[in-house]
Amino acid sequence: MANRIDTRFERLRAEGRKALIPFVTAGDPSIESTLPVMHALARAGADVIELGVPFSDPMADGPVIQRSSERALARGMTLGKTLATVAEFRGTDSDTPVVLMGYANPIEARGREGFVAQAAEAGVDGVLVVDYPPEEAEDFAALLAARGLHPIFLLAPTSSAERIAAVGRLARGYVYYVSLRGVTGAGHLDVGEVAKNVAEIRRRVNVSVGVGFGIRDGATARRVAEVADAVVIGSALVQALADQPDRAPEVSGHWLAEIRAALDAPRYD
C-alpha cells in the first residue's frame, strides 16, 4: 500500500497546489480535544498533520511548544495515548497523513521495534525524531521502512552539502527545512535566504521540501509556498489553541482555513 504522504504530495503536485502541514501537541489544550482538533484541521485543508508527542525535555523547542508539552504531560498524555488517538482518527479519516514528531527517549523507552509496529497499526505515516540525526537513525529508518512508514528529517540553514546528501539518502516523504537558526517559534524569516537554501536542498534530495519555523500567518505562508512544496506551521497554532482552550476544534479549524485560503488564492502578479 502506498504511503499516504506520497499519495497526498502526488495529488497536490498534479493540482499545482502546495501542502499545508499544521503541528499540534497531542494532549494540549486537553487530552479529549486532540481528536476533534485533528478532524477540524483535516476539514480545514491540512495535507499532513504533525502530531507532537510531549516530552519532559524538549530541547529544540521554544517557550510556546515547551509549555504546551508541559501542559500535556501534566494532564497525563503519553506516547501510548497518542498512538491510540491516531488509531481513533483513522476510524473516520483514512486519507489525511499523520506524522508523529517528538524526541527519542519516549520511543526508546517503549522499544523501537514495538513502537514502529504499534505506530504502523495505529495508522501513522511518518515519524520525525528531533534528536535522531541521520548518523544515529539508520537502524530506526530501516525499521520504519520495513513497515511502510517514512522517516522525516530536519535540515537547517547550517547543514552542509555533505549533510544534505546524507539526509537525502535516508529521507522519505518530505524533508523539513528549518528556516531559522534557533528554536521553534523564534524570530523573523528571510524568504530570500529560504529560497536559496531550498534550491540547494532540491539539488541533493529528491523528496518534497517542507519549510517551517517562523511562519505565523497566511501572507508569510504564501511567500514561503512559492519556493517550497509544503508549509509547516506549529507555534502560532499551538499558541492560538492555548489562548482559547475551550474552543480548540473551532479555533484550529478557522485558523487553518485562513492560511489555506491564502495559500490557494489565485496569483495576480
Partner: peptide, 10 residues
C-alpha cells in the same frame, strides 16, 4: 553519540 537536532550539528 550525537543525539541532537540538525540545527546543532554544524
Amino acid at each position: 553519540g550525537i543525539f541532537v537536532a540538525e540545527t546543532l550539528i554544524a
